[in-house]
Write a protein that binds this DNA or RNA. Structure first.
Lengths: 252, 252
DNA sequence: CTAAATTTGATCAAAAATAATCAAATATGA
DNA sequence: TCATATTTGATTATTTTTGATCAAATTTAG
């Protein structure tokens, strides 16, 4: 039985029972407690259940479901990218978090950081992180865009320009060695540009499906980016092309 | 049974009973009093209940009631006030909406307005109104306060000062003819003051339980207010005193 | 106000659970 | 096929949790 099979069984068993111990699961699935523990660790990292001492309980999110990110394409790869990216965030950091589903995936892996300051225009990010005890959030003000569930516009850019962060985690709609960073919305492009010019280190989170494709607004070059964080499916030739241009690529 | 499970049981038991002693909980959950005390300490640190000598009681204003916050005391009166206040909002208006449970109650009655512009620092307000087709929202930026689920601070005040609205709908923690408007948080007081100085017409929403009582920060006089919107239980003498001072009172 | 009773928080040792490590088993791929 | 990588289960050291004890703090009663 593979991990993926077990994962589904574990999640549904825990959801049904409310909570189960490692030993109950171990018996139910005929697996050793060590394996169950590993599984539970992985699953709770994804937020599908809550790890407890001795077992796990189901996650009941009575809250905030209206703002939690919509799940779309390339779910697993985005999840992996989020986890990778989160590893670059340390306690005490001040970071910009863009709106966008891949950046949103980072959040769940940031919840136990301490003294972390997050500056964001994304409501899903806020909803995910606002109750984390070690994180304080600075919300960017301006016009609220209901499509993107984020704040945009002139006022938002002004707001960002008044801050400086050590690291910025951003997303794009297209990325290629030739055209650089592209977006399909002027609003998003201006916000992302503002993040870039006010942070020391820029991390671009971009799953392989967007790489090699261009959207219609060009708003930045590869030179702006310090690290590209992407997934295991990135084409090797493209990867080589990026590296040749001096871009550091982190591949899941 | 893990702490996480107990925590849920304790919180719901205390919320149901209103208050419980350490020993009642100890017996109910078959745990030693020492463990219950530790749990209560942790839980009250999160603000999910209030620690008392000998036990714990439920928190009146549940901190984490999600963004769609259902509020606590005087529910019906607040609901009525909200409806009354909403009647003063017309299509095409630009309005400030404060954070606070009474102002939040207005929102439900605003959803079908057209060309309405709402400027707010309250996440519950945003959550309630963001999908209304006729309403555009300007979110005030700044430090996010997880307790109040709203944005506060210096930056937020600057933001507000860049806008002007026809009407402001605000709340207070205490109101009396003698001391005027009072609040129990500096943060809230400065935000409310900013709304007041940048709007033409100020509507104060305040249920009768807060009238005649003073909180500890005085931040405004009755003269600032154009209309007080309150409930049917307002004492007639106090009502008369307000009117004598030139305050227009709308009573439910 | 003082004294008795109760409650608490701190400390400690035992028990339980975990993470880390390693070797065997299994799967993967050239 | 063989070599390599991944997954699993056992072992062990570490961490977490728990209940008991006791001095200090708080409440209650006189």
């Amino acid at each position: 039985m593979s991990f993926q099979e077990r994962k589904k069984k574990i999640v549904s068993a825990v959801n049904e029972a409310g909570s189960l111990s490692v030993f109950q699961l171990s018996e139910k699935l005929s697996m050793s407690p060590a394996t169950i523990r590993r599984d539970l660790g992985d699953i709770s990292d994804e937020g599908l259940l809550i790890r407890t001492h001795g077992g796990a309980m189901k996650v009941d999110d009575p809250v905030l479901t209206s703002f939690t990110g919509k799940s779309g394409s390339n779910e697993n790869n985005k999840e992996a990218i989020g986890k990778l990216a989160a590893a670059f965030v340390q306690d005490g950091d001040i970071i910009f978090l863009d709106c966008g589903s891949t950046v949103f995936k980072m959040c769940r892996h940031l919840k136990n950081r301490n003294r972390l300051k997050v500056i964001t225009n994304s409501l899903p990010v806020l909803a995910e992180l606002f109750d984390a005890p070690g994180i304080s959030i600075n919300l960017i003000g301006g016009e609220f865009d209901k499509q993107r569930q984020a704040v945009h516009g002139e006022r938002a850019v002004q707001h960002i320009d008044q801050y400086h962060a050590q690291k910025a985690f951003i997303g794009v709609d297209g990325l290629s060695a030739e055209k650089g960073l592209t977006a399909h919305s002027e609003l998003e492009a201006t916000i992302t540009s503002a993040f870039v010019r006010n942070a020391n280190e820029i991390f671009l989170l971009c799953d392989s499906s967007k790489i090699g494709k261009d959207s219609y607004i060009r708003f930045g070059s590869l030179a702006m980016i310090h690290k590209l964080i992407t997934d295991k499916d990135l084409d090797n030739q493209i990867n080589a092309a990026f590296r040749e241009k001096g871009l550091e690529v982190v591949k899941g």
